[in-house]
């Protein structure tokens, strides 16, 4: 029979273990997601997302809800960061303004067509870009994308089709 003290210690250790496992398994994926969504400070965004998860761990529906919650926080923080950068760029000189997002090293390994696609992806509105990355990189269903983006499934469909149409147009113009 376990004493109440040991049980309390076990109860306190379980969420910590679950959080540690999540941190080890999900950190890289969340960092890549933030970069693909266009964040220039992906590490800060992912660190903030894990802190938010740590704060709200007890309020989650269950351990299964942790990854969708993290994804949602990363999407929201990246969108906020992009909006902030847009405002900064509007008020800065053209020489100092640099487009955020994927590093030159990561892009160097891509073909010309892929670089054009990445450039077109950067030009898309944040919502369309999010919907495309969540759909085609993570392979999420519409309902999951809607949950991550905090919008309806219909809006997800609309953003995905508009984004895809814009990318198709860019690729056709290149031919």
């Amino acid at each position: 029979m376990t004493s109440p003290l040991i049980r309390a210690q076990q109860a306190a250790a379980e969420p910590d273990e679950a959080l540690a496992t999540l941190f080890q398994t999900q950190y890289a994926g969340m960092l890549r997601l933030a970069v693909l969504l266009g964040a220039d400070d992906a590490e800060d965004i992912v660190a903030e997302a894990f802190y938010q998860l740590y704060r709200r761990w007890k309020k989650l529906r269950g351990a299964d809800a942790a990854v969708p919650y993290l994804r949602s926080v990363v999407c929201n923080l990246t969108r906020m960061r992009l909006r902030h950068l847009q405002v900064v760029r509007k008020h800065s000189t053209p020489e100092t303004a640099q487009p955020p997002g994927i590093s030159a090293e990561a892009e160097a390994l891509l073909h010309d067509d892929q670089r054009a696609l990445v450039a077109a992806l950067k030009e898309l509105p944040a919502r369309q870009r999010e919907a495309l990355v969540l759909r085609h990189w993570l392979g999420l269903r519409e309902a999951e994308i809607a949950e991550a983006m905090g919008i309806s499934a219909g809006a997800v469909k609309s953003h995905t089709s508009r984004g895809m149409a814009a990318l198709t147009r860019v690729l056709e113009e290149r031919r």
């Binding site: 890549r32 970069v35 892929q114 992806l121 895809m164």
Partner: peptide, 16 residues
């Protein structure tokens, strides 16, 4: 376009 987008995103993600 979907296939190319998927390939591009995979290639980008692999480089991070």
């Amino acid at each position: 376009t979907e296939e190319r987008l998927r390939e591009t995103l995979d290639a980008l993600a692999a480089g991070i």
